[in-house]
Each structure stands twice: as structure tokens, then as C-alpha cells.
Nucleic acid binder design. Structure first.
Lengths: 155, 155
DNA sequence: TTGAGTGCAAATCCTTTGCAGGCGG
DNA sequence: CCGCCTGCAAAGGATTTGCACTCAA
């Protein structure tokens, strides 16, 4: 089993090279995403994790940092049809992955499918679009909720 | 060339059958979507169209009606990685379609791809998820903006 | 040293809600 | 006529911003 390497140092260097200052706040936030692989944290989530760790940081800085990291292509912004956005680390060595979102329990399942990625590339090429990101979302009800009253719409 | 039939009467009957009252406001909003096929209106867009037509309606009712129509599966809610949501008429006779969103000009291109839909169905089945909606979004830069400074991130 | 980054509070944007009055069935 | 719908204004949640201060380089 592969232990995922900590890319934080590289990413920090990357920021430094682009003229950004490395502050404790920025480093903390990047480490949170490194430690939360496979999660899709919201700004509020990140802020809560920091508070639990006893770290001093403002919500404003959290939002500013997330926005900056998305612009640097270090974080990917995800839309799960909620009122707030989610974020995850970009791994340029991995093909884009996609998400199933359960409308009952709000859990998300990640999946990879090279066929879908390839079709996305062909379609983008057909329409003359240079891809920045592709997201395939399946909204539905997962079997674990089978006995509950199903929600047949977005929340 | 096929002239798309006006389904508004059927949809209104549908609402009536489900115990909802048919008010002028609800009928107006449904007709706006009928007349704006291929567009992806936001709540504010709908409100503006109504104002231009000289119709009297409040923004609150616009939001309430949109939410109700989504719950009735008459409208589909779309997320284009913006701060507000977009809506389009659901056509149950058509397979789900998807969108390319240009990060430069904010234009959207609709496309259909039965291969992608089929893959989505297979994946949902594999993970035991009953599909409510599928959305494949390609974010990128369209060729028309080729000479402009490219935005390489979400707005 | 210096200006980019931070914290705080206020502002902004989008959307929802409480309430009193209106009107569809 | 009953109670669902509406309009208005106020509230709410998520995110951004102005400003004075701080600290990374």
C-alpha cells in the first residue's frame, strides 16, 4: 500500500516561486487538505478544523486563502448543489475524478472513469473548448437509505 | 423543423392535480421558461424578464415558485460554479443533456451524449445509487476568446 | 523596511421567512 | 369562505471587502 507523500512542501515552494508569501495561516490550510485526502471540505469545515486544533485564524483569511489556492490550481472547487462550495486538493498526476452525491444522506462517493474523461475531451475538442476542469455529478439516493422516505429532488 | 409545442397547459394541469393553485404569477414564470428554451435563467433573470414585460411580481414569489417547480420536477437546477443557480425546463421525453461553461465569456453550450448518460447509469448501478439527475460540466475557455487573456480558474 | 497578508467588523449578494392582506377553487 | 399565495420588509447564510495593524522577506 502506497503512503501518499506530503506534497505540502512542494506546493509551498510553488507559491513562493510565484511571489506569494508563506504565512502560518496558508501553511496550516494546505496541511489540512493534505491530511484530509478524499474529503471535500467547505470553508466553514476548514475553519472548524483549525479551531479544533487550537489554531488562530480568521474566517476571512480562510476564504481568502481558499480562493487563492483555487486560482493557483492547488485546490479544486466542487459544487454539490448546496449553498456553499467544497474544496479538494488537485493531484496533477491523477486523472480527474467525479462524484456521486446522495440527496438523502449528503454523502459523496468518488469515482474515476477514464471513459468519461475521454468523452469529455472529445466533446471539448469538437466544440473548440480548452478544458480547465471537468465534473461529472450523479445526484441520487444511495441504497443505504432504501427504507427511508426518498427525496426525489435537491434539498 | 419541429416547432416545440407549448407544454405550459399540461404542466399547469399537473400542478393543479397535485393540489397546487394556479396563480397568474406561477403561470407567467412557467411561460417564461417555455419561451426561453435553451436558456439557463437565474432567479434574477426571471425577475428581470417579468419586469421588462411589465408584469407585477415580487422577487420572493419568483424564488418560491422556482423552488416549487424544481420540487415538482418541472425545472432542473443547474450549477455553473457561480454564486447563483440557474434553471431550465425539464423535458422528460429527452435524455439528460450537459453543459460546457466558458470561463471567459460565461456562455454555455449544451450537448447531448448518450454514451456519457449510459456510463453514468452503469456507475450509479455499480454503487447502488438510484439516479435523480446527472450533470456533466466541462469548464474551459472557448476558441472565440482565443486572443483574450485567458482565465485559467473559476471566477 | 515595506507592502503583502491578517483580523475584525461591516458590507454585499443571494435566498428565505414572518406576517398581514389578497384571491383561487 | 377558507386557507393557500402573495408582497413587503426583515432576516439569514455564505462570502467579500475596507481599514488599520502585523510580519515575511
Amino acid at each position: 500500500m502506497l503512503i501518499p507523500e506530503d506534497r505540502t512542501e512542494n506546493l509551498l515552494q510553488n507559491l513562493r516561486d510565484r511571489g506569494y508569501r508563506i504565512t502560518p495561516q496558508r501553511e496550516l490550510i494546505m496541511r489540512i487538505f493534505q491530511d484530509a485526502k478524499d474529503k471535500h471540505l467547505s470553508a466553514e469545515d476548514v475553519f472548524e478544523v483549525l479551531k479544533e486544533k487550537g489554531e488562530q485564524i480568521s474566517l476571512a483569511t480562510t476564504y481568502r486563502t481558499l480562493r487563492m489556492l483555487v486560482q493557483m490550481n492547488i485546490l479544486r472547487e466542487l459544487d454539490f448543489a448546496e449553498t456553499h462550495k467544497h474544496y479538494e486538493l488537485v493531484d496533477e498526476n491523477q486523472p480527474p475524478h467525479h462524484h456521486i452525491i446522495c440527496l438523502n444522506c449528503n454523502k459523496t462517493i468518488e469515482f474515476e472513469d477514464e471513459g468519461i474523461n475521454e468523452m469529455g475531451r472529445l466533446i471539448a475538442e469538437k466544440y473548440g473548448v480548452e478544458i480547465v476542469d471537468m465534473q461529472f455529478q450523479i445526484f441520487g439516493n444511495c441504497v443505504h437509505e432504501e427504507n427511508d422516505e426518498h427525496r426525489t429532488h435537491r434539498q
